[in-house]
């Protein structure tokens, strides 16, 4: 039986083609993808890059739980989640999510669900680097209330 969920925290460059190849299925007519990239501005500050930190074991466990929950809500869907750990420059890719399904509506909804849940509940952090050489860990969602 083929695997339908792939998750990974990695220091390797992310590859959307791997994501699409993993979720693709002859029974699926839709593949929705989300690619997160580093933006050059935040809250009025010029950003030069980000450093992503992650608790690899718990982050991958969290990704799996999120995809499993999504699969319960939208049966017959396949999931691929890769999150980068390390330093990225502006425009480089931090996360790739691909979801496939028989019809497009489930793919759109499930992909949105996965990225929103990751932002709220997966142990990953980012430090922004600014043009004035100052760096700041960004605030986020406390897991005490998760």
């Amino acid at each position: 039986m083929r695997e339908t969920i792939h998750v990974q925290v990695t220091t390797d460059e992310l590859d959307i083609n791997k994501a699409i190849a993993f979720v693709a299925s002859p029974a699926h007519g839709a593949i929705d993808t989300f690619i997160g990239a580093v933006r050059n501005e935040h809250a009025g500050k010029d950003v030069t890059g980000l450093t992503y930190d992650a608790h690899k074991e718990l982050a991958e466990k969290s990704f799996t739980e999120i995809c499993t929950e999504a699969q319960k809500r939208w049966p017959e869907t396949h999931y691929y989640v890769d999150h980068f750990q390390g330093e990225l420059k502006v425009s480089e890719v931090s996360i790739i999510i691909a979801v496939s399904s028989p019809h497009r509506e489930e793919s759109f909804d499930a992909c949105r669900f996965v990225i929103e849940e990751i932002k709220k509940s997966s142990p990953v952090w980012k430090k922004e680097h600014y043009v004035d050489s100052v760096s700041t860990w960004l605030p986020g969602h406390s897991l005490r209330s998760a």
Binding site: K119, S122, V124, K126, P139
Partner: peptide, 10 residues
């Protein structure tokens, strides 16, 4: 043990 501050991945 690990200490995990508020998260902000993606």
């Amino acid at each position: 043990l690990s200490i995990l501050p508020p998260v902000c991945g993606g």
